[in-house]
Design a binder for these strands. Sequence first.
DNA 1: CATTGACCTCAATATTGCTTGAGGTTCTAT
DNA 2: ATAGAACCTCAAGCAATATTGAGGTCAATG
Lengths: 159, 159
Amino acid sequence: MKKDSEGRMPLELTVGEVAQRSGVAVSTLHFYETKGLIRSWRNRGNQRRYPRVVLRRVAVIKVAQKTGIPLADIAEALSVLPHDRPLTARDWQRLSQTWKRQLDARIASLTSLRDHLTGCIGCGCLSMEECPLRNPQDMLGEKGAGPILLEAEEQVDVG
Amino acid sequence: MKKDSEGRMPLELTVGEVAQRSGVAVSTLHFYETKGLIRSWRNRGNQRRYPRVVLRRVAVIKVAQKTGIPLADIAEALSVLPHDRPLTARDWQRLSQTWKRQLDARIASLTSLRDHLTGCIGCGCLSMEECPLRNPQDMLGEKGAGPILLEAEEQVDVG
DNA sequence: CATTGACCTCAATATTGCTTGAGGTTCTAT
DNA sequence: ATAGAACCTCAAGCAATATTGAGGTCAATG
């Protein structure tokens, strides 16, 4: 990264600098811009220039993506954040608390699934009556009640 | 679901029956078939007929998908399973142990991410020096060392 | 035997999240 | 002044995971 003659941080970043420092491709930054996730202004030669805060936004995007949140949702959450000044602790707290909740839910769901799997490994699962993945009564289908629950809201009939 | 004249379970299922009992769309079953995840034979009128074990396979596919495993990987794992007879305990154990490991890894990764978020909520994160999401030294970028680690294998510079 | 619902194939479309390429411009270094 | 790197736009393509539609066949029922 360049510094000015005093060795200070640059006030604005080029797209290449943002790409390098944030670890995402230039094309991805363009893409994020079309989706409204980030913003830039242009220099005299029509090239994009970014405020430093864009690095924070990109970092936030990446964190959120890791939790499994789709870009559209991230965009909506980010829409309340300033594009033009550093994020405050409060800004971040709102976002991260929301996302933490979603992440907790996701982890809980996967953990429950894993515990089912674990149980099934022990019981031999698909060939045994007591397995949670097994349909306890194969009649259920015709009662219209729907087959066995694998997870609370989702029903499958494993036959 | 229909039974035969003795009230027994049908030996073969139509695509519609499989769809209803497994909770996936007919088009999805067609799709899975093109991907080699399931198989069928045809009756005289060229309609698909399925063995009951297909319900088990579909259930397994859905379980695996919930853990985040892509269809291609599921297909590969399922390729060792019989299409023509009920799965054995051993069949299932091999699969579920593999997937449990992947699931464990995924849960661990998300949990670690959540813990970062949790820490950040407490510290005000993006505006504070001690936050794990924050780049501790903004010089790193130009040293080519790459910016701060968010997770072990992934580097970001949050600016 | 005529209708109607279930089924068939194949192609096109949808969504998400990007990447690649063509063709042209600007910036930086020498 | 000029070469090469970096940038620009716009369109197309890709991978995964299906869904939808057109046009036609089959099967169960009154």
